Amino acid sequence: MTEYKLVVVGAGGVGKSALTIQLIQNHFVDEYDPTIEDSYRKQVVIDGETCLLDILDTAGQEEYSAMRDQYMRTGEGFLCVFAINNTKSFEDIHHYREQIKRVKDSEDVPMVLVGNKCDLPSRTVDTKQAQDLARSYGIPFIETSAKTRQGVDDAFYTLVREIRKHKEKMSKDGKKKKKKSKTKCVIM
């Protein structure tokens, strides 16, 4: 069974824990209790493949930012979460993405942009803004509501699919490099 290491990042209060708990335990946590770091595991079937999701729910508070490099190193894919009623959390996505790329030393890291709290009427981040940002990053965008469960499975499952595509691409690139290195030079 394939294991996928997913990391949920975003500013404090955007609903990272609520999304994760909704996926794992099928219930909505409405009281806000700032996370330092929590880890969850769940076995699911995605596109006919049974897999184990190892999900790291991270601290959004700035005082825990020193811990970010460590979990970013171990993560295979990242859910970059903002709240649709919090423009600052949307603007912060850029910083999370840049930090992930720096730590992973790669421009090509599996990510999904997630606009959470889409059940709320007080939207300050337009869907088109988020779609445009995701398009500019070359990553999928999904709106979710941890409260109603809308888009929750889709967000995590899409990230797994992005990781699969990335692994497939990397193995193809690896095979191309191996083929090239088999060419021999004969000096007579």
Rank of each mutant, 00 (worst) to 15 (best):
V7L: 02
S122V: 06
E162Y: 08
Q129D: 14
L159W: 03
K176N: 12
M72D: 03
L6N: 03
Q43I: 06
V45I: 05
I36K: 00
R73F: 10
L120Q: 13
T158M: 07
G12M: 14
K184A: 03
T87S: 07
Y137T: 13
I187G: 13
N116A: 13
F156T: 04
D33E: 01
Q43Y: 05
R135N: 09
R68Y: 01
M188P: 15
S136D: 15
I21M: 04
G60E: 00
M111F: 10
Q129P: 13
Q22H: 04
V14L: 09
A134F: 10
D132P: 14
E3F: 05
D47Q: 08
V7Y: 04
L133R: 08
R73H: 14
A130I: 13
K178T: 11
L52N: 13
S39T: 10
G13L: 08
K16H: 00
F156N: 03
P110N: 03
D47T: 10
E107W: 07
G48K: 09
T20Y: 00
S122M: 14
T127D: 10
A83G: 11
D47W: 05
K42L: 06
R73P: 10
D108Q: 08
H166G: 10
E63I: 04
N26C: 13
Y137D: 15
T20G: 01
V14A: 13
V103F: 13
K177V: 05
G13M: 09
G77R: 03
T127K: 07
D38P: 05
A18G: 10
Y40E: 00
C51P: 14
Y4T: 12
Q70K: 13
I46H: 08
V152P: 10
K117P: 01
R68S: 04
R123A: 11
Y32I: 00
Y157N: 10
I100W: 09
D92A: 13
I46Y: 14
Q25Y: 14
T144M: 04
D38M: 00
G77V: 12
A130V: 08
R164K: 03
F28T: 01
E162I: 10
L23V: 09
K182N: 03
R135I: 15
V152C: 08
L120M: 12
D69Y: 07
I46L: 10
N86V: 08
R123N: 11
I84M: 13
D105R: 04
F141I: 04
C51N: 08
R123L: 09
K176V: 14
T127R: 06
R123H: 09
D38L: 00
K175Y: 11
Y40L: 00
V45Y: 06
L56V: 14
T20L: 03
L23G: 06
E62S: 04
C118Q: 08
Q22F: 03
V14R: 12
S181R: 05
A83W: 02
V125F: 08
A18S: 07
K128W: 05
K16G: 03
R164T: 03
V14E: 12
R68F: 02
D54S: 14
K175P: 03
L56Q: 02
G15Y: 02
D153K: 06
S65V: 07
Q22T: 14
T74Q: 13
K180R: 10
T20F: 00
T50L: 12
H27N: 14
G12K: 05
Q61R: 04
V9C: 12
S17F: 01
A130N: 08
T50M: 12
D33M: 00
R161C: 13
K177D: 03
N116P: 04
I84D: 15
C51Y: 13
E63M: 03
G151E: 12
T2A: 11
G75F: 05
D57V: 00
K165T: 14
G115H: 12
K128V: 06
S65T: 07
V29T: 02
D38I: 00
G12A: 14
L52K: 14
E162W: 05
E91G: 07
T74A: 09
L6V: 13
S39Q: 10
K178D: 06
E98G: 04
L52A: 15
K128P: 07
V186D: 15
S136I: 06
D132T: 05
R97G: 08
V186K: 13
K176S: 09
K101C: 15
D54I: 04
E3N: 15
G174L: 08
E107P: 06
V152A: 11
M67P: 02
A83R: 07
V109I: 09
Q70T: 15
P121H: 10
I55N: 04
Y96M: 13
V103Y: 04
D33G: 00
D153C: 05
H27W: 15
K88M: 05
R41W: 02
T58S: 09
C80E: 02
V44R: 13
L23K: 12
F78C: 01
F82V: 15
T20I: 04
I21Q: 01
R41A: 05
R41S: 04
C80Y: 04
D38T: 00
I100P: 01
I139R: 05
G115S: 11
G12Y: 11
D108L: 07
P121Y: 06
T124L: 08
A83C: 08
R135A: 03
I93S: 03
L19W: 03
R135Y: 14
L133M: 08
T158N: 06
C118R: 10
T158P: 05
N26K: 15
A66L: 09
R73S: 08
D154T: 06
L53Q: 04
S39G: 14
V125R: 09
Y137K: 11
K5L: 01
K104C: 14
E98D: 07
E49K: 10
K177Q: 14
Y71F: 05
N26Q: 13
V114C: 06
I187P: 15
C118A: 11
G10E: 02
G151L: 14
D92R: 15
G13T: 10
V160P: 02
Q61S: 14
C118Y: 09
L120V: 12
S106K: 10
V81Y: 07
D69H: 12
G10F: 15
S65G: 05
G10V: 08
K175W: 11
K101I: 06
L79M: 06
G13H: 15
Y96P: 02
M72V: 02
K117W: 15
V160A: 05
E107R: 08
L53P: 03
Q131E: 12
N116W: 04
S65M: 11
E31A: 03
V14C: 10
V160F: 09
L23W: 10
G77C: 14
K172Q: 06
I84V: 11
R149A: 04
K42N: 10
A134N: 10
M170W: 15
A83Q: 13
Q70Y: 12
D33C: 00
D108V: 08
S106E: 13
F90Y: 09
M72L: 02
V152L: 06
V29Q: 04
K177E: 06
D30W: 03
K175L: 13
E107C: 10
V9D: 04
F82C: 13
R97T: 13
D119H: 04
S65F: 12
T2L: 10
E31S: 02
V7G: 04
G174S: 09
I24C: 02
Q25T: 15
D69N: 13
K5S: 09
I21D: 01
S181I: 08
A83T: 11
D54A: 13
R73M: 08
M188K: 11
G60M: 00
I24V: 04
E31D: 10
R149M: 10
V103T: 15
A83S: 11
R123P: 08
S17H: 00
D47C: 11
T158Y: 07
T58Q: 00
F156P: 01
Q61Y: 04
V160M: 10
V45E: 13
V112T: 10
D126T: 07
I55A: 04
K128S: 07
H27K: 14
A155T: 07
V103H: 08
G138D: 04
Y40M: 00
L79V: 05
V45F: 07
M188E: 15
R149G: 03
Q25D: 15
M188Q: 11
K178A: 07
K184Q: 07
D69Q: 09
A66P: 09
V114N: 02
M170K: 08
Y96E: 02
I36Y: 02
T58F: 00
I24N: 02
V125W: 10
Q61G: 04
V9G: 10
K167S: 07
N116C: 14
A18V: 12
V44I: 14
V8H: 12
Q22E: 07
Y71H: 15
T58Y: 00
H95D: 15
E98T: 03
R102W: 14
I84K: 13
Q25R: 03
E76L: 06
Y64A: 01
I24W: 13
E31Q: 03
G60R: 00
P34V: 01
F141Q: 03
T35G: 00
I100R: 02
Y71W: 05
G15T: 02
